[in-house]
Write a protein that binds this DNA or RNA. Structure first.
Length: 222
DNA sequence: GACCAGGCACATC
DNA sequence: GATGTGCATGGT
């Protein structure tokens, strides 16, 4: 028999976050290409800096995957500079579109459809695409049911005693996968809500007053 | 001026 | 296999 929501702490956290923040409508992008580009640019970077870089690409009519493919390295680097680590990220964007056009004819739907473990393995084999970036692309651009684990996700779960402090990526992801039905819309919303609560209350200095999870068991010193 | 942000690859032990 | 370090901008 199914456990009731009160017996499922992962579901309880979700319910509270959704009640408090409402639907987040992620990923904040107009196109799937913009999701892919944003996912790479946001690596270890504040989103506000990524927005500057995306706006510069848009202004130059380069916020598409064919445009990234056709751009020279120096021009690409110059356009994305505000997002930081721009030489590294230019190389990663190039590595992604090289595979996209060489193996999938430039079709993102072709690249992201098919056997999920195989698609994920192909993505993570691209230089610069690790587990988090691959999962963000799969979930938000490919609408595949994978759970995205980021720094906020780990922090919130640690502070609410749902994972060990040193749990790795897949261990954290499995906490959600095992507690929830495998639904793209649910995984989408949950991750976005974790980022919302993480940004507001769960940065390095925890500020728990007013947090929708404040009354759940937690420890701000993790 | 230090510290951090929606990671990842690589070197070294 | 575990841990440390470079990448680099803009906000606090």
């Amino acid at each position: 028999m199914h456990p009731k929501p009160k017996d499922n702490p992962i579901r309880t956290i979700y319910d509270r976050l959704l009640a408090h923040y409402g639907s987040q409508h992620w990923w904040p992008a107009r196109t799937d290409a913009e999701i892919v580009i944003g996912a790479i640019l946001t690596q270890n970077t504040a989103w506000s800096n990524v927005e500057r870089a995306l706006a510069r690409l848009e202004q130059s009519k380069c916020l598409t995957l064919p445009a990234i493919h056709g751009l020279s390295r120096p021009k690409l680097e110059a356009l994305i500079r505000p997002s930081g680590t721009y030489r590294v990220k230019a190389g990663r964007l190039k590595a992604f579109v090289d595979v996209l056009f060489r193996e999938f004819g430039g079709s993102l739907p072709d690249m992201l459809s098919g056997d999920l473990p195989a698609v994920r393995a192909r993505l993570t084999a691209i230089h610069g695409i690790g587990p988090e970036t691959a999962d963000a692309i799969l979930l938000y651009a490919g609408r595949r049911p994978v759970f995205v684990v980021d720094a906020y996700t780990k922090r919130v779960l640690r502070r609410h005693h749902r994972v060990d402090p040193d749990a790795d990526y897949d261990t954290v992801a499995n906490v959600f996968v095992e507690a929830l039905p495998t639904e793209t819309a649910l995984f989408n919303e949950y991750h976005a809500l974790l980022v919302a609560v993480g940004k507001e209350f769960c940065r390095t200095q925890a500020r728990c007053e007013g947090c929708p999870l404040e009354t759940l068991p937690h420890d701000a010193n993790r």
